[in-house]
Design a binder for these strands. Structure first.
Length: 113
RNA sequence: AGAGCAUAUCGAACAGUCGCGUGUAAAAUUCGCAAGGAUUUACAUGAGGAAAGUCCGGGCUCCAUAGAGCAAAGAUGCUGGAUAACGUCCAGUGAGGGUGACCUCAAGGAAAGUGCAACAGAAAAUAACAGCCUGCUAAAAGUUAGAAAUUAGGGAUUAGACUUUAUUUCAAAAUUCUUAUAUUCUAACCUCUAAUUUCUAACUUUUAGUACGGUAACGGUGAAAAGGUGAGGUAAGAGCUUACCGCUAGUAUGGUGACAUACUUAGGUCAAUGUAAACCCCAUCUGGAGCAACACCUAAAAAGAAGGCUAAGGCUGCUCGCCAUCUUCUGAAGUGGUGGCUUGAGAUAUAUAGUAAUAUAUAUUCUAGAUAAAUGACUGUUCAAGACAGAACCCGGCUUAUAGAUAUGCUCCAAAA
RNA sequence: GCGGGUAUAAUUUAGUGGUAGAAUUCCAUGCUUCCGACCUGGUAGCGAGGGUUCGAUUCCCUCUACCCGCU
């Protein structure tokens, strides 16, 4: 099992967000663009208005954990960015809500094998 | 039992499965021009009391080695101690608050100087004004006393008048005459009373002026009005005097000291309000920037052009001293890597010294180090049902947020004995 | 992470120890056949909490929100 490679730089994010396709849900937005590698890249962004650093960290961890669970079933060669919507409060949702949301959005984008 | 106060500690726990960062070890594979990195396995380890705010202090790095003097700017401000240092801590003093345990306080100087004090109020400060009092001058009024004059009234005396009045007597009546008394009138003089006027003297009151007169209680406003109360005193007043209280200074005693206590010690010049978190004065202290500092590696982390060289730069001004080439413009990068990075004013325990903060000694121990940034998810059990909240160079504090839990000591109230 | 700054009416902005001013907006009235423009009048405010002071928008402290910079 390979480690997930994260998107880091600003230009990478900009490329995906401008030119990729997107799917929008209640909690999350997911952007996807094809890269010419054999790996999937993941980027997560949570705005500062979602809460303090504890809440933001927890949201990131939830998303990362869910992505990890889905990763083996995904098509290869995409860079994926998951955005947390600003206004949603973390306390109203738990792990399973996020899981459902991500599952639905991935089906929309048709990246399952 | 209830309501509190202070100090200290903890701040979810346990088990299983999957996953993440770092370190060590092992083997290979792989990416990159390179420096270096990535992947897999095993073991170990992995976030707080505030990690937060960035409010102080220090280490560390660079700026010259961080220097000297004056100024400027800034900070602190009861005393003693602790500390590497501090605006922190401990122990005290004083002031204020609380029934109390206890809590709070940027708590030097207003007699070095400047400023400000709205409205109201006479006045917001060397005082003036109104008022009160005194003296003098002028005017007015009143009272008292005296003198004079006038008028009125009463009384006494003297003189005169009445025949026109009345009464009485006589008489038949009338008339006339006479006498007496009283009354009335007039005049003079004396006396008394009252009123008025004038003059003089004294006193009182009022008004005006005046004295650089005395006074600062009264002026009721204001946040604030010049020690307070009683008695005396005075032309009026006032610490003017006195008693008590307060205040200041001195002396003595105690304390390292802030300060406290005592005094049949002195002081009424006890006149000079508040504000210094207004400027300021005094004392003490402070060079600047910050790990995105800075150093190194790689072909590179840039460079190029122009100008100046005893004038410019090095946080501000001046003087000295030191260093070094410096300044300006254009352009590029901001898509590389490693170190700095965790053994430190460390942590725990015990002993000793000290009221304590803390210090010393001994023993044990190594306990995150990331770089888009690691602690999560699921299942089960327990209870108080999980608050505030995430290291980013490191320490000492402060401040702010915080569900609750535990321990120790103490206070108030109630009840019982 | 480190450093710096700002907060005044719905908006833009003066102001300063003595109770806050202007413009635009909004509301009402007038003018007009009606609207607009214009005239007259009015409403609405010192980010929050403490302290100093007789009295803070102003001075001091703490917090909150927002903005800017970093080779």
């Amino acid at each position: 099992m390979k480690k997930t490679v994260m998107l880091k730089k600003n230009y990478e994010f900009r490329g995906v967000l401008n030119k990729g396709t997107c799917a929008r849900g209640f909690l999350l937005d997911i952007y996807i663009k094809k890269n010419n590698k054999k790996i999937n890249n993941l980027g997560i962004a949570v705005s500062k208005k979602a809460g303090n650093s504890v809440k933001r960290n927890k949201i990131k961890r939830l998303i990362r954990e869910n992505y990890r669970l889905f990763e083996e079933n995904l098509d290869v060669g995409n860079s994926i960015i998951i955005l947390w919507k600003k206004k949603e409060d973390y306390n109203n949702f738990n792990f399973y809500d996020v899981k459902k949301e991500i599952f639905n959005l991935f089906i929309k984008l048709k990246i399952f094998l």
